[in-house]
Structure formats: C-alpha cells, structure tokens
Design a protein around this nucleic acid. Structure first.
Lengths: 172, 172
DNA sequence: TAATTACATATGAAGATACATATAATTTCT
DNA sequence: AGAAATTATATGTATCTTCATATGTAATTA
C-alpha cells in the first residue's frame, strides 16, 4: 500500500485507451464509464482500505481482521450464538466456525452450549479476550479519527443515517 | 444468508450478557457499547453483504468477486498496469497478480509489456472479457437498484459526496 | 411415537489470499 | 559508467475462505 500510495494521484480515472475500445451504444451499459461514483464500488474500496490499514496494526498481535471483528461484536454483545455472530459479522458460517476455533485456541473466547437449546453454541469473551479488545480498540479509533478528519458531527450523522438506510435495503 | 435473515430481526443489538460483563469505567472504552453506529463497522457490513449477495450471481458463470471487480476496473479504464489495478481494485499486489493469471487463463484479459517501460505490464480486456462484463453488469445493477430503493437523487449525491471525503482521508 | 423435515454447527477438500522473498528493469548516487 | 537503491511484477509457502456435505439436535407430521 505504501509504494502504491506514492503514485496514486497520477492515475487518470478514465483511460483514453479504455474509453476508445469500450464505447457504449445507445441503450447499452457504458463500458468506459468511470467506476468511481458507483456507490457499491466506492463502499468496497473504503471498506477494504480501512481493512488494509488496520491489518498492519493487527499483525504484531497475531490478530486477523475476521478475528478482530468477531471480538468486537462480542465486546458489544457477549454470549451470542454462532448464527447471531454470522449475522453481525457478515462472515460465512463455515468461516466463522473456524474463526472461533482460532480465538478459542488463543484463549480469547470460550464456547458454551446454550442452557435451553443443546444445538446452539454461545460464545463468550474470556478475560484475555476483553484485554485484547481494550488493547486494540484505540489503534482502530486512531485510524477512524483520521478517516473523519474535517467532517463535523452533522456530516457524520447524515452519513450514518444514509448508510443505515442502505443497509436496511440490502439486509434480508 | 437465507436462513440467517429469518432470525435476524430477533437479535437484540446489545446483549444484557455482554453489557453486564463489559461495563466501561469513566475514561475507558466501553466494552458493551453498540457497534452498529460505528461507521467503519457499518461500512464493512454493507460492503460484505453486497459482496455476498453478488457472489451468488457470479458463481454460475465461474466468476469470483476479485476477478469481477478487476474486470470492472478494466471496463472503465482498459490497459491499466498491474500497479494501477492494485490501487483501483484495492486488491493486494500478490493476489492481483494471480487474479490476472486466472482472467488470462479464462481468456478474458491479456497481458502486454508497456511499450516504453519494459517492467510494467499492461492488462487489456479481450472481446470475451467485454462480453462477460456486459453480461454480468445488469445483475450487479439489479442489486444496486434494490440497495437504493426509497432514496432520491439528493440522498445519493449527498451520500456519494460524504463517502468521497471519507475516501480521500484514508487513501494515501 | 416413529419417520420426516428443518435447524445449528462442524469439517474435508479445493481454491484464494497474505507474507516474505525472488527476479528483473530502471533510476540514483558517487 | 558502475554500484547501490528503487520500482514493477511474480512466486513459494502457510493460512484462510468457500463450497459441499456431515453430524447431531429439535420441531413437525402422519
């Protein structure tokens, strides 16, 4: 990411090369249209850049993104079932199962059968898990502070509201 | 994702279990604070849900998300170098190299040495690549249409502007 | 209540990604 | 110009994710 950043601003958003070859006929999807304003693509890039940036902080403490997000969800809402974690983390069930394996191996969470339903597994942070969360969260928040630089509360409230509407539309 | 959707609305955002254990002392990061309004987390969930939804459409045509996004970037801006593609797709260099391998194997792109710099590789869509793009794009746009249901142009312009500011802050 | 279906989680195998490093082409420095 | 540093891309290896399916538990039905 570092080397790439240096050259970034030099890249034209729509190359003459591509535009020449991909001219759209009327009624057809434009091949040479810029992607930058397409919201899903913008959202994706933001999310992945944030992930990329955070990863460098996570690496020294042997933490991966999937594990970190899972830890965060548990920090906000301990004792969730696997299924609930799947929904909250947006990690696939099979992957989540192994994410929890790893967190458990590292002593950060424990699995316990739900008292009422013997097929439901609930996941709990351990003391070490809570400690790890408290240790990493500030690093994440530092990134966030940079991301919202120059944006005031009204902007953020607005952005949050719009994103929630977006989310409600796709989450089903 | 389907089974999970059914139970989703029943999940309380902050569990009493977690809240009880993770009470924050003054000046400390809240352990039991809801994650839902934390923007990076919201962005991540949106991005991943979109990805998850799209993947089911991509699967039948043997297309993966990384390959699709790369194809999209090339459709918007053909003949980019590997490095430029890394920036635009936010896929890591090593991963992108193999993504291009695959696309090339499938006959959707070709690699060509840049005429002036013998170490930069430029990537071009083939006819088949353009066809594939035109075939998949409508599916993606259908998802998008659903995502922005109920949002008017002003909302979208606003959202886009805010996200661009966010992006500019983190992209370096 | 035995059989059937649905649900929650786990696991094997294949494929994809990440990290470190290799290779090769330029550029910079002295 | 020659040596050292930089840049662009590729590749080996370990780890992670995905897809398909297995396993065990609970709910439904005949």
């Amino acid at each position: 990411m570092n080397e790439q950043a240096r050259q970034k601003k030099a890249i034209p958003e729509t190359g003459a090369i591509g535009a020449a070859e991909g001219e759209a006929r009327p009624g057809e999807l434009a091949l040479g249209a810029p992607l930058d304003d397409y919201l899903p693509y913008l959202l994706f890039r933001i999310s992945n850049r944030l992930a990329l940036n955070l990863r460098s902080d996570l690496r020294p403490m042997k933490m991966t993104l999937a594990r970190w997000r899972t830890l965060s969800v548990l920090a906000a809402s301990n004792g969730r079932s696997m299924g609930e974690l799947v929904d909250h983390t947006v990690i696939e069930q099979a992957a989540l199962s192994r994410v929890i394996d790893q967190l458990q191996r590292d002593g950060l969470v424990t699995r316990r059968l739900a008292s009422d339903h013997n097929r439901v597994v609930r996941v709990f942070l351990t003391r070490a898990g809570r400690l790890m969360f408290r240790q990493i969260r500030p690093l994440e928040l530092a990134h966030y502070a940079q991301a919202i630089e120059g944006m005031d509360t009204a902007d953020l409230v607005q952005l949050s509201a719009l994103l929630h509407r977006f989310w409600d539309n796709i989450d089903r």
